[in-house]
Amino acid sequence: MSSSQYVILRKDNFDGFISRLSKLQKLVAPVSKGHNNFSFEEVTSGEEVAVRYIPTILPPKKYLMPQRETLLEFNVSKGLESTPVVEHEKTTIFGVHTCDIAGIQCLNMVFSTRPRDFNYLTRKGATTIIGLECNDYCDEYASCALVNANLPNGGYDLFFTDMGEYFIVHVNTQAGEDIIEAAKFFEEAGDDQLKALASLREKKREIFKNEVPIDPRKIPELFDKSFDSKVWEELGERCIACGNCTNVCPTCYCFDVKDEMNLELKGGRRYRVWDSCQVEPFATVAGNHNFRKERAERQKHRYFRKFRYHVDKYHRLFCTGCGAGGAAEPAWLG
C-alpha cells in the first residue's frame, strides 16, 4: 500500500464533502426508502446518504444503461431524415459496493466489444465512480465471496472504507485525485490508519467465506454437466416469469429497441428499453415460433448466461454475488 494513494475523511466532514461533491456535478448515492429498501438517487447532503445499505432496488447500472434511452431521432415529413444521438450527463455515483462495481466492469466489457456501443461508452466516460467497502455481509442473500467480489478489485475512481471515526479513501485515478483536491476535506493517511485498513481486510477474510460448497473454478464445468438436469424443470415450475430477477441484476443488459412517433406524426425517436429473457416473447420470431417457450428453458438460459456462456466470451463469471436476483423473486427460487 503506497501511503500517497490513501487519504482520510473525518466523519464530521462527511456532510461537507457530500454537499461539495454535489456542487461539482450531479451526485447520486444510496438513499433509504423505508422498510429496508434502498435506491440510488440524487443527493446534496451527507445525511441523505445511507452509508450502511443492502443492495439497492435497482443497481447503479441504471446510470450507465438507463431503463430507457434514445438512440436515434428521425423525421419523416420530408423524406427520411435521422440522427443517432446519445443522452448523457456528468454524474458521480457515490457509495458503490464491490458487487455493483463488478457488475459495471462486466457491462464495460460487453459494450466495448466490437461493434462498440457508443451510447454506453459515452455515458461511461461521463461517470465518476466512488466505491464503498462492505465491512461485513449486507444480508443473507449475498454470495460475493463465491465470485470474489467482496474485496475491492479496481473499477473505481475513489474507494471509501468506513473505519468508525473516519473513512480511509483509496485514490485510484486522476479523476479521483481531482475530487480530493477540489473537496479540501481530506488529509493524508498515517501509518496507523493504513495498518487499521490492513487489519480490517484481514478480518474480512475471516468473515467472508465461500458461501456455496463448490470450487468457483469448477462452476463452468458443473454447468456443462447440468444442461439436461431436472433442476431447471423445478425452477420453471416455481418461476412466474415476472422479469424481476433480470431487472435487478447488475450484469443483465438485454434490451428491446422500439420506435415512438411524436403527436404531430412527423418526427419521432428510436429508443431502447430494458428487456428480459424471462418473459415469453423474448425469443419469439415472426410466425410465432418461440425458441425458449418454457419457463424452465428461460431460467436455465439466465443461469447459463451468468455462469457459463459469458465465461468463454469474456473470461469472467457474470454473477457478482449481490443476491439481488434472489431477493427480488416473488416466488423464492433460491
Binding site: D117, Y253, C254, F255, R272, D275, F282
Partner: peptide
Amino acid sequence: RHMKCGMGKCGHCQIQD
C-alpha cells in the same frame, strides 16, 4: 432468431454460446 441490434448485444438471438 429474433434480433433487435444485430451487434451481439441485445440478447434476443442468443443460442447458448
